[in-house]
Design a protein around this nucleic acid. Sequence first.
RNA 1: CGGGCCGUGGCGCAGUUUGGUAGCGCGCUUGACUGGGGGUCAAGAGGUCGCGAGUUCAAAUCUCGCCGGCCCGACCA
Length: 570
Amino acid sequence: MRWSKAFHPTFRDDPSDAEAVSHKLLLRAGFMRQLMAGVYTLLPLGYRVAHKITEIVREEMNELGAQEFRLPTLHPKDVWERSGRWDAMGQEMFRFEDRRGSDVGLGMTAEEIFAHLASELRSYKQLPQNWYQIHTKYRDEARPKSGLLRVREFTMKDSYSLDIEEAGLDHAFDMHFKAYRKIFKRIGFEPIAVEASSGSMGGNESIEFMLKSDAGEDWIASCEGCGYAANVEKATSELAAESDEAGLDAPEKFATPGVRTIEDLEQFEGGAPGSRQIKTLVYKVDGKTVLLLLRGDDALSEQKLVDTVEAEEIRPAAADEIQEALGAQPGSLGGVGVTEHFIIADEALRGRTNMTTGANVDDFHLRGVSVERDIESNAWLDLREVKEGEPCVQCGKALAVFKTIEVGHIFKLGTKYSEAMGATVLDRNGKARPIIMGSYGIGIERALAAVVEASHDENGIVWPVNVAPFEVVITVVKPKDVECMEAGERLYDSLKGSGIDVLLDDRDERPGVKFNDADLIGFPYRVTIGPKGVAAGVVELVARRDGEKSEIRVEHAGETITEAVLANRR
RNA sequence: CGGGCCGUGGCGCAGUUUGGUAGCGCGCUUGACUGGGGGUCAAGAGGUCGCGAGUUCAAAUCUCGCCGGCCCGACCA
């Protein structure tokens, strides 16, 4: 490709309404343009990268023995109704009526459709199967953001394993785990695999692949000592041993005028530090009032509650509901003496004595509370969100908590979808058994943006060779100089002939403009061909990543550069 | 969905308070000089100021309504 004939529109300034690095750079360097909120056009540069990522994913899926399908993106309502997700997905699914008035949804994922196809399977002898597709998905996100990191229309590789035995699922899951590791490494970054919540997918085990990045929106806890890592929606930590004094024989009520928050009570004369307070949250779980008790300095992980409590609807209670249930406003709530409501206490409160909590009378608290003596909790659960620095459950080292981008997610689904779709096969004994499914996803555009987040500098993107839009750019410093231009073209032909993705910058621009554009776009290698070099019979090779320069004799240039590129392809 | 900010040539912005000829930088076109990190000079093109109503002699500017975008939060496989 000749740059003078290409559509590679670059900007000199950062676009004003982009925040994330990948968002800024992908716009500025001419990889994409926004059409509307969460919907982007990939320009030729962007599409080349997306295509290379797709090919890597495809190769690794084929390597694993998976078969590629192509499903529709138009899904009929009834298939989604059978799994219960037509309703469960709520506003997140794009929906409309066709001309006959039939309800249609745009596919956000394909468990239903693949399970529906799997109902054609008859015998365990046809299993295992591994099915996948790489296709457009639609999700009407409430808040698309950060360029390609969170969009409403995107390409996803989604695969599905079908097995008769749990052991088969374990194997398929493991194969995907390894394939994902390899895929991300080839694409150009190494995410952390973490235990995750399965959310609305269902199933009992899932692993997310997370790339550390400030542009991300998922917090994970990870341990450098032993490699334990989990999404904070799931993470646990060792509890630091607390030594409490026995305290009083019975709770003592005391006035706390104006105290509303944990911090207020810490400051209050006669109050208590957050670690000695019991925080009381009121939730509505399928309409029932439930009290959640946590240590004052712990935060509730709502996802942990959702994951452990089987319920349709879980939400914080409204102010009037709280008043009616406990007779006091938030700030003075507590579980002491409460018997008419279900109480769930966090594990961190077990055995604690001499604590302080609300008295269920506005502006009054209780001190000297022994949790197990004074509060009739109906259940003990792990509800707290892990904090930075807490000891790892496996090795005791301090956990780090940081932000990440979710670039892949694999699920052990079980039989939820196969049962809903009637996907059963006959086993060895002639008995019908639901197929055991797993599902596995990678977002292509998000992975593309993740590479940029992971690999850039102050001058622009630094593409790994494997996914670079072009592996080499030949910068002809003075295109009007016939010798320069011809030297450039000869090298271009030579590299092209060797199968290198090469772009010839033949634009009539100043060298500085070309160098800056090349750096911004991020080609891994730049060959500079100028009058001085040509006169001396050399060209200059510059590596984008470290700026390392070397002079190469013109007659060896094609060969040397080809070798350098091939050495970095994976 | 709640809160905040914003919509003016392709990009970045000023002008809106106090209504009166739509402006700047970059980019773009043509030509010349130039040519190893966004060069110089000259001459140009390009905008119904997000949309619609209203007030007014007159609206980018004031009023009302709508649409769109970004950020924070809630939500989210």
